[in-house]
């Protein structure tokens, strides 16, 4: 049942755990998003260059180029690209981790385990599209 969106929103998912990436891709496409998968930061940068995404979901721990480096790169290219971080890292308290500072916004940190519905809601909120949740 596709989401009632005017044009498919393009989401880039950078996640090195294939099982998580596959499920996310399935869930998001069923909600009407167009999804591109990347296994690490470097691949994500390539995909984004070839086919710019409307929002990026990224894991933090990844081989080759990790989530932090990816965020730095993306933010240096665009100040407005919505970013969603999924992390299992425990001590990412408010104010303690650099990623929580305002300079990375629009950026939202979601702690694993993440509900895919919450990801969809967060994406729609960051992109500025109304409603849309199933």
């Amino acid at each position: 049942m596709p989401e009632p969106t005017p044009a498919p929103v393009h989401i880039l998912v950078a996640e090195d755990e294939p099982l998580a990436a596959m499920a996310l891709e399935d869930f998001l496409s069923r909600r009407g998003f167009r999804v591109t998968l990347a296994q690490d930061g470097l691949e994500a940068m390539e995909r984004h260059r070839d086919d710019p995404a409307d929002a990026v979901i990224t894991d933090l721990r990844m081989p080759r180029m990790d989530g932090r480096a990816l965020i730095r790169e993306l933010r240096s290219q665009s100040a407005t690209l919505p970013l969603v971080v999924m992390t299992g890292f425990l001590s990412m308290d408010e104010g303690q981790d650099d990623l929580t500072s305002d300079r990375w916004k629009p950026l939202e940190i979601l702690r694993k385990p993440v509900s895919p519905q919450v990801i969809v809601d967060t994406l729609l909120r960051l992109i500025g599209r109304p409603g849309g949740s199933a």
Binding site: E17, A23, G88, L90, V114, S115
Partner: peptide, 18 residues
């Protein structure tokens, strides 16, 4: 450990909700 646990937990949650 929390990080280790969050990986499979994340996969489970996404697949289950899916």
């Amino acid at each position: 450990m929390a990080h280790e646990m969050s990986q499979p937990l994340n996969i489970i949650r996404i697949w289950a909700e899916n």
